[in-house]
Design a protein around this nucleic acid. Structure first.
Lengths: 213, 213
DNA sequence: GACTACCTAGGTAGTTTTGCCTATGGGTCC
DNA sequence: GGACCCATAGGCAAAACTACCTAGGTAGTC
């Protein structure tokens, strides 16, 4: 999906902080891109870019928390490190509970930020790897016909009674037809056993409502 | 494991707060037990008691964060709601990152605490349900012999090549012996198919290092 | 009308699993 | 020595799965 190197996005309304942060991070080998407002970031960023976000909490217009909420609403899961000059406890708690990696108060040591960024990029990398697997499974699953999905769901729901005969009895069709569907399901999902289907379904939550990207 | 009703544990060094909090919470129907220090709580609490912990951050002796760390060290996963009079951002961030449900600054509205407590008790309930399943699987797994564990691991590692013949070839034994072991494994794990074994193993992380209780 | 996709279902043959049985040899425990 | 657990392994038969094949009916599309 992406082979570009990870990037540290900075969003801060203060020009001085933007440039000094950018300079410091570039010097340490990070790939950096800075924005003066949440909107500027939103117009450029696409979720297929690996990286993390260093986000100022207090900004005119859309503030950091609002940007975080907007990213969440769009299902963009980029890891966020908040920085703030005057944030309170309630704000920081809200930010972390909403999934931020960290919340640093200015002034902070550059080392502390570096370490958080490294951790955030690592988190992003792992998430992307997991995401790729899940996306693949979801795509494969979407390619099943309704009947196939139904049968797959029955097999997953009760793996021990997933024999063709059992399912055939429940659906009141021939077990040979179930055989046929099972073969199609495994083929389309690129797997070779019901066990793998069960595994995939629990990892990709094929039959759950929620699917966190 | 437990059928006692969930309890709200309060740990605060301030006698006035303890009694007013206890009174308020009892009036709202919660089962409450209060302690004046982290140590007092630790000597009484056992992890089989369902509930949550309302924890003062700043206390003489062992403070809230230290108690949280100690509970973590002991693998006691009771949900924690911090309350604090003078906590900073760094402390709150640390607490939430370490798994606390919430971090409230005094003074707070009683309603806010109630809502957090309800949420915490819900979290605890779900965790206990999951834990029970995982514990059962872990116990069952522990009852397997070494050879059985080895074969179970091979079956889980590659569900599609988990046929007796495949595994027999890899272990250079008869496929009938593998049949025999497979039957023992399924029996001891209280399941009826390799698919369920794969499922259990991924849910209980039988073959991973970490197992969060 | 031809084409395609899907659900249905059967034939045949080979492979695998499952459940029942027995059995040998190596340990350990009392 | 006897009881017990474990790993090994085979016989046998029923059930299930797998991989190949054909084929009818329905519905939608070009």
């Amino acid at each position: 999906m992406t082979d570009t190197s990870p990037k540290v996005f900075i969003v801060d309304d203060d020009q001085d902080i933007r440039s000094s942060l950018s300079r410091a991070l570039r010097k340490r080998g990070f790939n950096v891109e800075a924005f003066g407002s949440a909107m500027a970031f939103l117009t450029i960023y696409t979720p297929d870019q690996p990286g993390c976000l260093v986000l100022d909490y207090g900004m005119p217009g859309m503030n950091g928390l609002e940007l975080q909420a907007e990213l969440k609403r769009r299902n963009y899961a980029i890891p966020i490190i908040f920085i703030t000059g005057h944030g309170g406890v309630a704000e920081s708690v809200q930010a972390i509970k909403s999934g931020a990696i960290d919340f640093l108060e200015k002034p902070f040591r550059q080392d502390a930020l570096d370490e958080r960024i490294r951790s955030a990029l690592q988190t992003d990398k792992k998430r992307r790897e997991r995401l790729q697997m899940v996306t693949q499974a979801l795509d494969d699953f979407a390619s099943l016909t309704e009947r196939e999905k139904e049968i797959a769901s029955l097999m997953v729901a009760n793996p021990s009674d997933a024999s063709s005969k059992m399912i055939a009895r429940r659906l009141e069709i021939s077990h040979r037809t179930v055989d046929h569907h099972r073969a199609r399901i495994l083929e389309k999902m690129h797997i070779r056993s019901v066990a793998e289907l069960v595994d995939l379904s629990s990892k990709a939550k094929l039959f759950d409502e929620s699917a966190t990207l």
